[in-house]
């Protein structure tokens, strides 16, 4: 019996000391975890942030069919570039890979939503940007 009392006492003591401090703040979990998860730095900034400096090209893009597309979708996340634009250049995509992600022909892609081409047939080895300007797409 004494052994049990000691054991239960020990458990209670351990429970007291080892329970994390923000336990049960909102529920049976560490309340501080919420702020810890929220503290992570976002990597993708926002179109508005890009447009603060690159206003003319953003305006051009936003007039065309690509207006819903974020700059960072092709150019990569911009959190470092915003801090220090000299040392952290944005990515300039090469080749046609980025275009094909959306515009390659696939029966599952709804025709009404997106223009598609059979890449090999349509471009005959040319790169998309030789004819199309992604910031000012035309049909």
């Amino acid at each position: 019996m004494l052994a049990f009392a000691v054991f239960i006492g020990l458990m209670l003591g351990l429970k007291y000391f080892l329970t994390p401090d923000s336990w049960r703040e909102y529920g049976p979990y560490r309340g501080k975890a919420l702020t810890e998860i929220a503290d992570k730095v976002p990597k993708y900034v926002d179109m508005e942030t890009c447009a603060m400096c690159h206003d003319s090209i953003a305006e051009l893009k936003n007039q065309g069919l690509h207006k819903l597309i974020q700059c960072e979708l092709c150019h990569g996340p911009g959190y470092l570039h915003v801090e220090d634009d000299e040392n952290n250049k944005m990515k300039i995509p090469e080749g046609s890979g980025v275009c094909i992600e959306c515009h390659a022909k696939n029966a599952a892609r709804p025709d009404k939503i997106i223009k598609q081409v059979d890449v090999a047939e349509h471009s005959e080895g040319e790169e998309c940007i030789n004819c199309h300007n992604p910031h000012e797409p035309w049909l």
Binding site: I37, A38, K43, V45, L73, I114
Partner: peptide
Amino acid sequence: CTLCYHRLKDGLDPACMMACPTH
């Protein structure tokens, strides 16, 4: 998935929502 909890708290859209070209 955290629904980009860190972005929501900064007033940004979650990355996948932001990235969708067709909304």
